[in-house]
């Protein structure tokens, strides 16, 4: 069984973004970019499925600029087998990303798609569910556990109030939550090996799907700043301020 893992190149999670003064977006010049952390979790899960013998091949797909090749290389160094880059400088909306992924899936026919629940830049938490809808596949989002036996996956999901277990017939789309696994660091030999693994470079036009944006970004602004930073000397002062100044207790 083939596992397909979409991976996105995003601003590193440690970077605090700055809004551009002209309000057209955020400043991405010279900031550190990395693989979306949830996609590292997706890649790790796919590689583990292969190591356990439940999967035979792990294919990673990224949609983004030329530099997204580095993101694919990171996944290859973690143990994925090959990559596909759909190269574009356009900021695609989740629906367009899902349509491109659906077109890739029509060609690749994976047995399961394992992907991140959310990209930490757009924060949409949408592509996986949209992809499942377009393919008419079952979905199991926010996974903290995946057990595959034969052509079914039992997925434990993190939901409001606790955990839910679903059974999905494959093929299906599964999106990873934080607790699914702890992604490995690629070893130096594996990073070297990854350089020889194939990456297929495509363009959005190769897939003949409508990727036009439906949303226009009118402006990007900074959120209101919080006036914090006040310290209290001790617990008695804290309680007195909460009661008398803030009136919240």
């Amino acid at each position: 069984m083939k596992v397909l893992v979409p991976v996105k190149r995003v601003i590193d999670y440690n970077v605090k973004v700055r809004v551009k003064p002209d309000q057209t977006g955020v400043d991405l010049a010279n900031v550190k970019m990395s693989m979306n952390p949830f996609d590292e979790i997706g890649t790790e899960e796919a590689v583990r499925l292969k190591e356990k013998g439940a999967a035979t091949e792990v294919v990673v797909v990224s949609i983004g600029p030329a530099q997204a090749q580095e993101t694919i290389r990171t996944a290859l160094a973690m143990g994925a087998d090959r990559g596909i880059l759909i190269q574009t400088d356009q900021d695609l909306e989740p629906l367009a990303v899902a349509k491109l992924l659906a077109a890739v899936i029509a060609q690749e026919t994976p047995g399961v798609v394992v992907m991140g629940k959310q990209a930490i830049d757009g924060d949409n938490n949408a592509v996986g569910q949209m992809l499942a809808a377009l393919l008419d596949w079952p979905q199991a989002t926010f996974a903290s556990g995946i057990e595959i036996s034969g052509d079914t996956a039992k997925v434990t999901r993190e939901v409001d109030g606790g955990l839910q277990v679903l059974s999905v017939a494959l093929p299906a789309v599964i999106t990873a939550d934080l607790r699914l696994n702890e992604p490995r660091y690629a070893s130096l030999p594996n990073i070297m090996k990854a350089k020889k693994k194939p990456i297929d470079i495509k363009s959005t036009a190769d897939y003949g799907v409508d990727v036009a944006n439906r949303l226009t970004v009118l402006k990007v602004t900074e959120p209101p700043k919080r006036q914090g930073g006040v310290k209290v000397a001790d617990v008695a002062e804290l309680v007195s301020k909460l009661k008398n100044e803030a009136g919240v207790i």
Partner: peptide
């Protein structure tokens, strides 16, 4: 809507 962990707010207009 907030993006980038709420460090930026984007105003979007839909044509849908």
């Amino acid at each position: 809507r907030p993006i980038y962990a709420g460090n930026a707010l984007e105003t979007v207009k839909s044509s849908d």
